[in-house]
């Protein structure tokens, strides 16, 4: 099982699509590692500088309909090779969300008002998060501020995360 904790990259926009996450011209790369420098290269977000802002981050917190557009699994992979294993958002496009779990990564949905709250309280600070799978709770920490947020993922998604991905799971079960 991968690790789901660490410093957060806040992306304050809805509808961030997979072309923004990893442009099509890099889909000719054969190794996941080769995608590393290009993560979020075409992201339209004021003040965002990919190289500087991504460095050291391991979790993304963002808004609605994240990962819409193309089915390219290169999008989760581009996060993975940059050390980002989890995206928390108020909504996901179906294929992206499934791809994340299929890779044994996490794409967790929280209510829009909870996401609002996270942006309000943490987005301007250096924030990190821990995931407790027993209690199904995230703990967000910045400066002196600590907040616990419960989360849900389906049993199926969780079994993919535990198995290490869909290939492993399907191979055992079908």
């Amino acid at each position: 099982m991968k690790e789901f904790k660490g410093k957060i990259l806040f992306l304050d926009r809805s509808d961030i699509n997979t072309d923004e996450i990893i442009p099509a011209k890099y889909l000719t790369e054969i190794t996941k590692e080769a995608l590393k420098p290009y993560l979020l290269e075409d992201l339209v977000l004021k003040g965002f500088e990919a190289a500087k802002d991504i460095l050291g981050k391991t979790v993304v917190v963002t808004r609605n309909n994240f990962g819409c557009g193309s089915s390219r699994e290169h999008a989760p992979w581009a996060f993975e090779v940059n050390g980002i294993n989890m995206v928390i958002a108020s909504g996901f496009a179906r294929i992206f969300q499934q791809n994340m779990f299929n890779c044994g990564m996490m794409a967790v949905e929280l209510e829009e008002n909870v996401i609002d709250q996270l942006f309000k309280n943490f987005a301007d600070k250096e924030t990190s998060v821990k995931t407790d799978f027993n209690k199904m709770v995230f703990t967000f920490t910045a400066d002196n501020r600590v907040e616990e947020v419960p989360f849900k993922v389906s049993d199926f998604a969780l079994s993919l995360v535990n198995a290490g991905g869909w290939v492993e799971f399907a191979d055992k079960n079908y």
């Binding site: 179906r94 791809n99 869909w166």
Partner: peptide, 19 residues
């Protein structure tokens, strides 16, 4: 449309998971 992992399982097993 699916990602490469769903595709991989589809090729190998002829199944896919959906809500």
């Amino acid at each position: 449309g699916v990602g490469s992992t769903d595709l991989e399982v589809g090729i190998l097993k002829g199944v896919c998971a959906f809500k």
